[in-house]
Design a protein around this nucleic acid. Structure first.
Length: 273
DNA sequence: ATGTCGCTAATGTAGCGA
């Protein structure tokens, strides 16, 4: 099973890239972020022509998430409120479309677009921390359901110094502050592991390069797009790679796709005769 | 640490968010 995440930075601007990438990569499920399109305008038809169905939660201009799969997307849940009914903060945070999940091929896939936060002294940063606090409650409920779990998306957080091209200049700043990292760690607990770090210990691997300041030509990137796996899925993990090639195309997204390969699920044990 | 991009309001370009 091939699972991917990609912040496309507008699905309408990136439609041709996305379609070509789906044909080449043929993921079994992909979580998209920053689709930037209301649900009524989502381009279902060209995706369906490639055999992909979509579950979407979008809005005009900002944010927006979607799950695509050629298999069934079952039990789709939109927003934090789907698992936190009656939670006023979950309801309020749901105005920004950043959370969608579905059951795909025996895996619960949760697709997230974590707020960027802008700057440490910004009210957007406070929003980011509050949002992560709500995510923690959401994932606690999700865990209690006992489903094989994959949490992926654009986290807008570099977990460690090795995920930054310039640790000396970036550690402690936005997307690399202790409070953000601790909030993320609290969401993940001891069980969810970053698939990329199951295979690659070194620095120098990025998933996002700022359009500004020659980020791509100078390879000044950050590793902020992640795929987290529960222990059951970690056992099945065969590899995780960042598809840098996409970032080098004409009119690219500023993010590259991240792709995880899982071995087939073990057969159910035969009942005793 | 800013050398860009995508969006929206609108027709020309500013403002916002990343």
């Amino acid at each position: 099973m091939r699972i991917a995440t990609w912040n496309v930075n507008s699905i309408r601007s990136r439609q041709d890239h996305l379609l070509a990438w789906l044909e080449r990569s043929r993921p079994d499920v992909v979580g998209l972020q920053e689709t930037k399109v209301p649900d009524g305008d989502f381009p279902h038809d060209p995706l369906a022509a490639l055999g992909y169905r979509a579950a979407v939660s979008g809005q005009k201009t900002y944010n927006g998430v979607a799950l695509l799969s050629p298999h069934g997307l079952e039990d789709v849940r939109v927003g934090f409120s789907a698992l936190l009914p009656g939670d006023a903060e979950a309801e309020a945070l749901g105005e920004q479309r950043r959370v969608i999940s579905a059951w795909v091929e025996g895996v619960r896939v949760v697709d997230l677009y974590v707020p960027n936060g802008s700057a440490l002294d910004s009210d957007k940063y406070a929003y980011k921390l509050a949002w992560l606090g709500c995510l923690r409650r959401y994932l606690a409920v999700q865990r209690d359901q006992g489903e094989p779990l994959c949490v992926l998306g654009d986290f807008n957080i570099a977990p460690e110094a090795r995920d930054l091209h310039d640790p000396a200049g970036q550690e402690g700043g936005i997307m690399a502050s202790a409070a953000e990292r601790e909030a993320l760690r609290a969401c993940l607990g001891d069980d969810l592991q970053d698939a990329f770090r199951l295979f690659e210990p070194d620095a120098g691997h990025w998933s996002w390069w700022d359009y500004r300041g020659g980020g791509w030509p100078r390879d000044r990137g950050w590793r902020i797009d992640h795929v987290y796996l529960c222990p059951l899925l970690q056992e099945r993990a065969m590899g995780c790679r960042i598809d840098r090639e996409e970032r080098g195309r004409e009119r690219p997204s500023d993010h590259a796709p991240v792709i995880v390969e899982l071995a087939d699920a073990p057969e159910e044990a035969e009942p005793e005769a």
